[in-house]
C-alpha cells in the first residue's frame, strides 16, 4: 500500500490528493456491488433483528442461489466474450429430461448409485453437446449469439417436451441422489452449496489465471487482435459455449437432486435471472471485462432481497422491481465508465 501511495502523485495528474490504490479500488466493479450487498444485509438485519441473518436464513439463501450460481459462472464466460446465452433454462430442462428418462427406465426412485452416476453423466454430456453446438454456430460469425441461443432455447425445450409429452415424468430422480446432493449436509453445510462453491472457485481461477481465461477476456475485448495473434477464436468460442452447456447440465443434476422432478415449465426465466446476476456483478455486456467473484455477489443480491423482504413482511414481488431498476442502473454506469475511459 505504501508503494502504491508513493506512486500516486505521478499517476494521478488531475485528481491529485486521492491515493492511487483508493482510486483503483473505486474502479473495481466488484467493490461497488459488494457495498450494495453489504448494505442490504445490514438493512434487513436492523429492520428485522434476530429474524434475518440467522443461520437458517443464510443456509436457505445459499441453497436457493446454488444452481443460479453454477449457471452464472458459465454465463460470466459467455458474456465476457461479448456473447449471451438465452438457452440455459431450456438446456437445463433438456439435460434433466435426458437424465430423468434414463433413471425412470433403470429403477426409478429406487435406482442404485450406478444409475445415479450414469444419469449425471448423461445430463452433463447433453448440456455440453448442446452448448458446444450453439458455440459452433456462433463461431461462424454469421448469426449473432442472441439469435443462436434464442433458437436453441426453443429447440431444446421443444425436444424435451417431445420426449415427455410435455408432462414432468414421475421417478426422474433417485432417492439416493436426493438424499445425498439434494438434502445432505457436511458439517452443517448443504452439499448443494459445497458443490456450487467448488465450481465457482475452480472457474474463478480458470478465468483469472489461466490462458483459457485470458483468451476469453481478450476475445471480448478485441476479436480481430486475438485472431491476428494467432489464437483460434472460433475454437475458443465453442469451448466457452460448451462450458456454459456443461454447467447447465450440472444445474440439471442439482435441480433433480433438490426437487426430484424435471420442472419442464419452470425454467423459462432462468436466463434472465442469471444474466441479471452476471451484469449486476460488474461483467460488461459489451465484453472484455468481468469476474466470477462479481457474479457471486450479483447472484446473492436478488436472493438476499427476496428473503429479506419476506422477513420484514413486504411483498417479495418488490424484489423483481428493485432488481430491474438496479440492473438498468448498473448497465448505465458501465456504459458511462466505458465512454470516460475511452476518452481518456
Amino acid at each position: 500500500m505504501t508503494a502504491e501511495s508513493e506512486k500516486a502523485p505521478a499517476a494521478v495528474d488531475s485528481r491529485a490528493g486521492v491515493p492511487d490504490w483508493l482510486r483503483r479500488a473505486a474502479t473495481l466493479n466488484e467493490l461497488w456491488t459488494f457495498v450494495i450487498l453489504l448494505a442490504l444485509v445490514v438493512f434487513f438485519t436492523i429492520a428485522a433483528p434476530g429474524k434475518f441473518f440467522t443461520t437458517y436464513d443464510i443456509t436457505q439463501i445459499a441453497v436457493n442461489a446454488a444452481i443460479y450460481l453454477v449457471l452464472g459462472v458459465g454465463m460470466t464466460f459467455v458474456i465476457i466474450t461479448a456473447g449471451i446465452d438465452l438457452s440455459i433454462g431450456s438446456v437445463l430442462v433438456l439435460a434433466a429430461v435426458a437424465a430423468g428418462e434414463y433413471n425412470i427406465h433403470h429403477g426409478g426412485p429406487a435406482s442404485g448409485w450406478g444409475t445415479v452416476a450414469f444419469s449425471a453423466v448423461i445430463a452433463l454430456a447433453v448440456g455440453t453437446a448442446w452448448g458446444a453446438l450453439q458455440g459452433v454456430v456462433v463461431a461462424t460469425g454469421k448469426v449473432p449469439p442472441l439469435i443462436v441461443t434464442l433458437g436453441g432455447l426453443g429447440a431444446a425445450l421443444g425436444i424435451a417436451e417431445l420426449a415427455t409429452g410435455g408432462q414432468d415424468p414421475a421417478g426422474a430422480a433417485s432417492t439416493h441422489l436426493q438424499n445425498s446432493l439434494g438434502f445432505g449436509k457436511v458439517l452443517g453445510i448443504p452439499w448443494m452449496v459445497i458443490l456450487a462453491a467448488v465450481v465457482t472457485a475452480i472457474f474463478g481461477a480458470v478465468l483469472g489465471s489461466t490462458r483459457f481465461g485470458e483468451h476469453t477476456l481478450a476475445i471480448g475485448s478485441n476479436p480481430t487482435a486475438v485472431r491476428r495473434a494467432g489464437i483460434p477464436v472460433g475454437r475458443q468460442l465453442v469451448k466457452v459455449y460448451g462450458l456454459m452447456g456443461l454447467l447447465a447440465g450440472l444445474g440439471a443434476v442439482m435441480w433433480l437432486a433438490s426437487y426430484g422432478t424435471t420442472s419442464i415449465a419452470g425454467h423459462s426465466t432462468d436466463n434472465l435471472k442469471v444474466i441479471t446476476a452476471v451484469v449486476l456483478g460488474g461483467t460488461s455486456l459489451f465484453g472484455g471485462r468481468g469476474s466470477v467473484l462479481g457474479t457471486v455477489i450479483g447472484v446473492f443480491i436478488p436472493a438476499v432481497l427476496t428473503t429479506g423482504l419476506i422477513v420484514i413482511g413486504v411483498q417479495q414481488y418488490w424484489q423483481d422491481v428493485a432488481v430491474g431498476v438496479v440492473l438498468v442502473v448498473a448497465v448505465y454506469i458501465d456504459q458511462m465508465r466505458r465512454k470516460t475511459r475511452e476518452r481518456a
Partner: peptide, 13 residues
Amino acid sequence: APDLDAAANLYLG
C-alpha cells in the same frame, strides 16, 4: 485488447 493490461497484450497468443 484494450481491457487487458500491457503485459498481457505483449504476450497475447
